[in-house]
């Protein structure tokens, strides 16, 4: 009972942070509008990339244009959700550099809650809008029957995927406690996950699949549940496959704790 109360309190506090973020952003309405539009248009270049490839090729590894678009829409949505909610981790190098993490440590709340609260990126609704547009097109153009199981699968994918990308941002932030140099390679896992996740992972071959199962579990939020969504598999348990992110997220949380303890012993 007490845990539930504490959790509810944390959620309430988080949304208090969110409202301050949104109100801050609203102070610059013109700039905000431009950024949202920019975000909307930016991901169109990826979309056109897919579109023009499919004007030349009718399918890739048996996936049709609509199927790939569905996949891309889902991954884009996962990534944008993570960016929106976990932007505090994504921009954490600045937080450490400016010494703002000290302030977080002198407040009686969990560090994760405060870092997440420090940045809520409203401009990402631009990208989400694009994901929704593609999704709407796919729903109208392809005859997939949206059974309750499929809707559940979709919801699980979005939740699990957002969590996976969020966890990757958290790993990046944890590394910031050790060094601020050369963390660019994390882009392979975050931006790369989004860019290459636009196609179902099996098109890249066996090795990439193995990596996406054993190292960073992209496959559990993309390839496997997608098989159920596209009617290539009838196994209803695939809907819950995205839960496989949980152990990965737990490991990332441990990395974070280790990073914080290192920060506390090494100073900034």
């Amino acid at each position: 009972m007490k845990t539930i109360q504490k959790l509810a309190d944390a959620v309430r506090l988080y949304f208090h942070y969110v409202s301050l973020n949104v109100r801050s952003a609203m102070q610059y309405k013109a700039s905000l509008l431009l950024m949202i539009t920019g975000q909307l248009l930016v991901s169109f270049s990826t979309f056109f990339g897919i579109h023009f490839m499919f004007m030349r090729f009718s399918h890739v590894k048996g996936y049709t244009y609509e199927e790939v678009l569905l996949c891309f829409a889902i991954v884009l949505m996962q990534f944008s959700l993570a960016e929106m909610f976990a932007r505090g981790f994504d921009t954490f190098s600045g937080t450490v550099r400016r010494g703002e993490f000290d302030r977080i440590l002198v407040r009686p709340r969990s560090t994760v809650l405060q870092v997440l609260g420090s940045r809520f990126e409203i401009t990402r609704i631009g990208r989400m809008a694009q994901a929704c547009l593609m999704f709407a097109y796919v729903v109208s153009a392809s005859p997939v029957a949206w059974t309750p199981l499929r809707v559940t699968t979709l919801a699980m994918m979005l939740l699990g995927g957002a969590m996976l990308f969020g966890a990757l941002f958290q790993v990046y932030a944890s590394l910031c406690f050790f060094t601020l140099d050369g963390l660019e390679f994390m882009n392979v896992l975050t931006d790369g996950g989004r860019e290459y996740g636009k196609y179902p992972l099996d098109i890249y071959g066996k090795r990439v699949m193995q990596f996406s199962i054993a190292v960073v579990p992209y496959a559990v939020v993309q390839y496997y549940p997608l098989q159920l969504l596209l009617g290539r598999s009838a196994n209803p348990w695939l809907a819950f496959c995205p839960l496989g992110v949980l152990p990965f997220a737990a490991i990332c949380q441990l990395c974070w704790r280790y990073g914080v303890s290192r920060y506390k012993s090494a100073g900034s």
């Binding site: 490839m53 060094t179 050369g182 390679f185 196609y199």
Partner: peptide
């Protein structure tokens, strides 16, 4: 320099993934 080294690793992976993607289309048609 550290950024360059990290960048090389990053770009190597991006390149590799890109080629795997084109291979899939090549195999398709």
């Amino acid at each position: 320099r550290t950024a360059a080294l990290a960048g090389m690793v990053t770009q190597f992976f991006w390149g590799g993934m890109n080629i795997l993607m084109y291979r899939a289309f090549y195999e398709a048609d």
